[in-house]
């Protein structure tokens, strides 16, 4: 395999949320195939800075695929073409010499563009505030082993809890739905006995908030599951629907 490649990048540039954006074309040369995608953008940004041009703004932090800060749509796919991979963990060895890459921010009504590839994902936080927790005050917990949890339930809860809150599911969904994100949190907590006392309230609260924030509906297109860098399964959406239905049918007040 060739150790370095050259690429043509078409990058969405937008100076601010109220400005009009457009694609700019950049040629990058001698990109080592061991580089990560973000390191490739770093190289371009260093060049732009030296030329006195504004570098491309993009969110990133841990660069090891866990903080959920990074993300862009590459050739139409959130976090790029590799399955189960965040943009920061996508390496250039998966591209070929002279490839053309179109790089855009998450596109969703609920996520306004802040600048270039940076979007405002605070609506996801609003969904968590609406009930994504177990109400336990510090100091009041019983001994940890006093409540056994079947291993299978703990493992399934962990599968859902692996969500990094990056928003790729929303960007992937033609409806702009946040069902995968919301269902991951609802499932994580509903699967554990500690989360049961508030399960009904949580399901109703989080789903209503999600609807209120302008996310679209889920119509089982399943793009979210394909693009999720942590491979969170849509079976969580089925569980959310069950939890929500149960809660709704039994609820005293809605």
């Amino acid at each position: 395999m060739k150790k370095s490649i050259s690429l043509t990048l078409k990058v969405w540039r937008q100076a601010g949320s109220t400005e009009k954006g457009s694609f700019e074309t950049y040629a990058v040369k001698d990109i080592s195939t061991d580089m990560s995608f973000l390191e490739m953008l770093d190289v371009l940004n260093e060049d732009l800075t030296r030329e006195g041009k504004p570098p491309i703004a993009f969110d990133h932090d841990c660069r090891e695929g866990i903080c959920g800060m990074c993300g862009a749509v590459v050739n139409g796919r959130p976090h790029g073409p590799e399955k189960g991979t965040t943009l920061c963990q996508l390496h250039m060895r998966h591209f070929s010499d002279n490839d053309e890459l179109v790089i855009e921010p998450w596109r969703s009504r609920a996520f306004p563009v802040v600048k270039d590839l940076v979007v405002d994902r605070s609506p996801l936080e609003r969904i968590i505030i609406a009930g994504g927790y177990i109400s336990v005050n510090t100091g009041s917990a019983p001994e940890a082993n006093s409540l056994p949890v079947p291993q299978e339930a703990a493992e399934k809860a962990m599968d859902a809890a692996a969500c990094i809150g990056c928003g790729a599911c929303v960007a992937a969904c033609p409806n702009g739905s946040a069902m995968l994100f919301t269902s991951a949190k609802i499932s994580h907590l509903a699967l554990l006995p500690q989360g049961r006392p508030e399960a009904a309230r949580r399901a109703i609260g989080m789903v209503q908030e999600m609807d209120r924030l302008g996310f679209g509906n889920c119509s089982n297109i399943t793009e979210c599951q394909v693009e999720c860098p942590k491979e969170v399964s849509i079976s969580n959406i089925a569980r959310l629907n069950r939890e929500f239905m149960k809660a709704w049918l039994a609820a005293d007040e809605k």
Partner: peptide, 15 residues
């Protein structure tokens, strides 16, 4: 106490 509290919060520790 940290383990107790985090377990009560729903941290999915290995079991």
């Amino acid at each position: 106490a940290i383990i107790d509290h985090c377990t009560a919060q729903g941290v999915p520790f290995a079991r």
